[in-house]
């Protein structure tokens, strides 16, 4: 009997982990994410693809956080798209966000069919992270590289000074 309960628990656990994402950090498949990558308004969106396990991604997060606070009162929005494995949503991603006190909006992209959606984000993307997309309306630029705060600022200014 305890064995059955244990098995039932093991079965329910992963389902529960997927079914109850934190409202602050939504989990999307690519179709769910796509509208956030093509908003048509006068805001400039800075979208960073990262993961908690990706060392260069974690290293550049402060640059994105700095941008988020620096442009808080302007039409600039930072979106951090986590590519962590969905099984690590509760065990790694949420604790990481709390621990680092991440202020930018974070969403998780859980869609293993990356061969289909990488090109939709940008044909220039090979799939390596970190990667960043900056866009305003139909003006878009994609970067498969790491940024310092100054480098990121320079790229952003190209968008907002127009």
């Amino acid at each position: 009997m305890p064995k059955i309960i244990f098995i039932a628990f093991m079965l329910i656990l992963p389902i529960a982990a997927q079914a109850q994402p934190d409202a602050q950090v939504p989990v999307y498949d690519y179709e769910g994410l796509q509208p956030l990558l093509q908003k048509q308004n006068d805001t400039t969106y800075v979208v960073n693809f990262w993961a908690t396990w990706c060392k260069p991604c974690v290293a550049e997060l402060p640059a994105f956080e700095e941008m988020h606070s620096k442009y808080r009162n302007q039409k600039v929005k930072v979106l951090l798209v986590s590519l962590d494995f969905v099984k690590n949503y509760h065990s790694r991603l949420l604790p990481f966000i709390a621990d680092k006190k991440i202020q930018s909006q974070v969403v998780m992209l859980n869609d293993p069919r990356s061969n289909e959606w990488i090109d939709k984000v940008s044909p220039q993307w090979s799939g390596a992270i970190p990667a960043t997309l900056i866009y305003r309306n139909d003006q878009r630029k994609f970067y498969e590289r790491s940024f310092t705060a100054d480098e990121l600022d320079t790229e952003l200014l190209k968008f907002i000074k127009q």
Partner: peptide, 10 residues
């Protein structure tokens, strides 16, 4: 030719 998410080469 296909693409996938992966870690950058360090």
């Amino acid at each position: 030719f296909t693409k996938a998410i992966g870690c950058t080469i360090k």
